[in-house]
Computed example of a mutant assay.
Amino acid sequence: MHWLHLGIAVIFEITVAICADRAKGFTQPSWTVGTLASGAIATYFLSQALLTFDVGVGYAIWTSVAGVGIVIVSALFFGHRLGWRKALGIVAVIGGVVGLQLSGGAA
C-alpha cells in the first residue's frame, strides 16, 4: 500500500507544478486553488507512504520521480524541449532512485 500512496503523492506533486506554473505567481485564482489543493493532497499521501519508507528515501523517491514526471509532462503537453542532456539527467535520476530502493529504504 505504501507504493500506492507514494504513486498518488507523485501524481499530485506533478499537478502542483503544472498548476503553480499556470497560477502565474498566484494571480490566477482557479490555478492557485489547484496548486494549494494538490499540494495538500500530495503531502497527505506522502505522509502515508512515510509510515513505511525511511523519510530520506521516501522523500528522495517522491521528489525525484515527480521531477522526472514534470519534465516529461511539460515536454509532451507544453512544448518544452527534451534534449539529450535532459534525457541523460532523467536516466541519472532513475538510477539514483533505483539505488536508494535497493539500499533497503522501504519494507
Rank of each mutant, 00 (worst) to 15 (best):
G56I: 05
M1Y: 05
C19S: 13
V33Y: 09
G56L: 04
F53W: 06
F78G: 05
V68D: 03
K86I: 12
I41W: 07
A106K: 01
Y59R: 05
W31C: 10
T43W: 03
V16S: 07
V93N: 02
S103I: 06
R85G: 01
G99C: 09
G89F: 07
I61C: 13
G96H: 03
L50Y: 02
I90L: 05
P29E: 10
A23S: 15
G25N: 08
T52N: 09
V98T: 13
I41P: 05
T43G: 07
G56Y: 02
G58H: 00
A42M: 09
M1C: 01
A66P: 01
I72V: 15
V98E: 04
L51M: 11
G39I: 06
A20V: 14
V73I: 15
R81T: 11
L76C: 12
V91C: 08
D54P: 01
G7W: 03
F77I: 08
I11T: 08
S47H: 06
A20K: 05
V68R: 02
T32F: 04
F26Y: 15
S38Y: 01
T52I: 11
V55N: 12
A60T: 15
A40V: 14
G105C: 05
A9D: 01
A49G: 04
G104D: 10
A49Y: 01
H80Q: 15
S30H: 11
G7L: 12
T32I: 08
S74Q: 14
Y44A: 13
F26S: 09
Y59V: 15
I18S: 08
I18N: 06
V91G: 00
F53R: 01
L82I: 12
F12E: 00
I18Y: 11
H5I: 02
F45M: 00
A42E: 00
T27K: 13
A42I: 11
Y44N: 04
T63V: 15
D54L: 05
V71P: 00
F77W: 15
F12S: 06
T35R: 02
F53D: 08
S74G: 07
A42K: 07
A75L: 10
T15R: 03
T35F: 09
W31L: 09
A42C: 13
W84V: 14
A23Y: 02
A49T: 04
G96N: 04
Y59T: 15
R85T: 10
G25V: 10
S30C: 08
A37H: 02
L88T: 14
G56V: 06
K86S: 10
G67Q: 09
A49N: 01
H2N: 11
V57Y: 04
T43Q: 07
L51V: 11
